[in-house]
């Protein structure tokens, strides 16, 4: 029994890691409805920036997170300028309604993410960076028969704070209203006086800052900071977002937890090489049987 309980707890902690990444990802990709495949690299940049700050000033964790938050915000601005804004330079109705224009950012964000990843690799090499051991968030905490680490608690609290803050902003404030307006109908939003460019830029700032914080937290949690570290969590976040119905952040968080638990529990029954397939299986099942996400999201398209 203890064994299953321990696997369940490990699964929840895995799921929290995915959820942490999924929140910022869903805000940009799902809620704002902008195709962005560079979130994994923002996450990686957050981790490397954090490592750089640690090496230079060795600040306490809270200050470190603030610094990474700032780097993530700047990265978000740069990303939006380079890969997204150029595709919005035509404001006529045909361009604004064009799917091709909207989905062109799939390639531009992917291109930017490849450039960022290769640049990090050229500068730092592709090996794991050595993280000062005392900074690692892996102090064990024994709770009866199961073991968690202090990182689990920190990641849980951070993810919860991000989730609640975003839910509040999106549903209770004018900024949230304009984000949802732009997502729903960019042309209509422009006609009623919403500053579309500004709204999109701010959403990138917030989403990317969250992505960068996720990167450094997970980097310190596992002690594994390397150029392609963003790929795997990026895939899991994507699947969680699709499962959760694209535009729902709580939905993505719950689905991230489901994926994590399913991965951990799958090792009980099958060889662990199959663990990676769990997320893809969920993705296929969702696309075939729940095209609106398993909670029945608002939008038709998944």
């Amino acid at each position: 029994m203890d064994y299953y309980l321990q696997q369940l707890v490990i699964g929840l902690s895995l799921g929290m890691v995915y959820a942490l990444v999924a929140i910022g990802f869903t805000l940009i990709f799902g809620v704002l409805n902008v195709v962005n495949f560079a979130h994994g690299e923002v996450y990686t940049i957050g981790a490397y920036a954090g490592l750089f700050v640690v090496a230079a000033w060795a600040p306490p964790l809270a200050a470190l997170l603030l610094a990474v938050l700032a780097v993530g915000a700047l990265t978000g601005v740069g990303l939006e300028r380079l890969a997204f804004r150029p595709f919005r330079r035509f404001t006529d109705e045909a361009s604004l309604k064009s799917r091709a224009m909207r989905e062109a950012t799939l390639m531009s964000s992917l291109a930017l993410s490849i450039i960022a990843r290769e640049a990090i690799e050229l500068i730092y090499g592709s090996q794991f960076q050595t993280v000062p051991l005392k900074l690692l968030l892996n102090e064990p905490i024994r709770l009866g028969p199961v073991t968690i680490v202090n990182g689990d608690v920190i990641i849980f609290v951070t993810a919860l704070a991000m989730l609640l803050a975003l839910q509040f902003v999106l549903t209770r404030t004018r900024v949230g209203l304009s984000i949802r307006a732009v997502s729903n109908n960019a042309l209509g939003a422009r006609y009623v006086g919403v500053d579309v460019d500004r709204t999109i830029a701010w959403t990138f700032v917030v989403g990317s800052a969250m992505g960068a914080v996720a990167g450094i937290l997970v980097g310190l949690y596992y002690g594994a900071i390397f150029p392609s570290m963003g790929f795997n969590p990026g895939v899991k976040a994507f699947v969680a977002m699709v499962m959760g119905g694209l535009s729902s952040i709580p939905g993505a968080v719950i689905c991230a937890l489901i994926i994590g638990v399913a991965e951990a529990l799958s090792t009980i029954f099958v060889a662990s090489v199959w663990q990676e397939l769990v997320a893809y299986a969920f993705l296929i099942v969702t696309l075939i049987f729940f095209p609106r996400g398993i909670f029945g999201g608002a939008r038709e398209r998944v």
């Binding site: 699964g11 895995l14 596992y222 090792t267 662990s272």
Partner: peptide, 9 residues
């Protein structure tokens, strides 16, 4: 990234 499920097993 996470060996804990295997280690537990």
């Amino acid at each position: 990234a996470d060996f804990r499920p295997i280690i537990t097993k």
